[in-house]
Design a protein around this nucleic acid. Structure first.
Lengths: 126, 126
DNA sequence: CCGGTTACTTACCGACATGCTAGTACCTTA
DNA sequence: TAAGGTACTAGCATGTCGGTAAGTAACCGG
């Protein structure tokens, strides 16, 4: 489906008030676009990661926030948690198939932001 | 470029720590994925809108937040503001070409969220 | 001269998101 | 016995985000 078709489709949805205030889509959207949710999903888009890896990749995240974010994404069925009963503990996080669908849309967005961030910040000052 | 290539590309960026804590990309990402920023960008993706229209479409947004969101997006060079010197005042908001690039990536994401929101919320309870 | 319209701005305030610091549990290695 | 690695959880402090409500400006129509 072409982009313009997508936009047209979205228009029908907006006109039909498909994005009302208390709608489930708002909730899911908040999870997906949350400050850390985006980074975690992107980090998992490439391959399964362990707790410590995620901490390092999503630089600046606290342990509390990482735990909370992962829990939310798991509840949403986007992330799969697999704990291995070994010592020291080992837990692998990966995307579910639903999560991969989402990541496929998210990654190009992130790439665009990365590519244009400097340009945009420069705009601010000019 | 294929999705898997995109992911691979992103991987190089992550490994190279292209998403560090104080990075401009984090800032831009926060604007773009902010609670109301997403909705405003999506609303403008289809056609230019007036202040009042945006208020109605992004249901639940306060005037303060709408003003703040629009100002941020304008500063980022994603939204263009055009005030007509008439009474009563008329102001049109539209996407810049940069904004349209972004919206082209954002709209499919929103569409996906809308399509899967119910399914995801159902997952929570099961 | 008073209400209505449109697009804001400002001040105030509370709640929630987030950060920081500790603490837990278990085993390994020294 | 003590330190260290891994994956958390809990409690308290804080700060920013976002909401509410009111005010501003400019003109028109009645």
């Amino acid at each position: 489906m072409s982009v313009s078709n997508r936009v047209t489709e979205l228009r029908r949805r907006f006109d039909a008030e498909i994005f009302p205030a208390q709608c489930p889509s708002r909730m899911v959207l908040d999870h997906v676009t949350s400050k850390w949710g985006v980074l975690v999903l992107a980090a998992l888009a490439e391959e399964p990661r362990r707790w410590g890896e995620l901490r390092r990749i999503a630089e600046g995240i606290s342990e509390k926030m990482l735990a909370q974010t992962l829990k939310t994404l798991e509840r949403d069925g986007l992330v799969h948690r697999e704990a291995h009963p070994v010592i020291p503990p080992r837990v692998d996080y990966s995307l579910t198939s639903r999560g991969e669908e989402l990541a496929a849309l998210l990654v190009p967005l992130l790439a665009w932001v990365i590519d244009h961030a400097d340009e945009i910040v420069t705009t601010e000052q000019g």
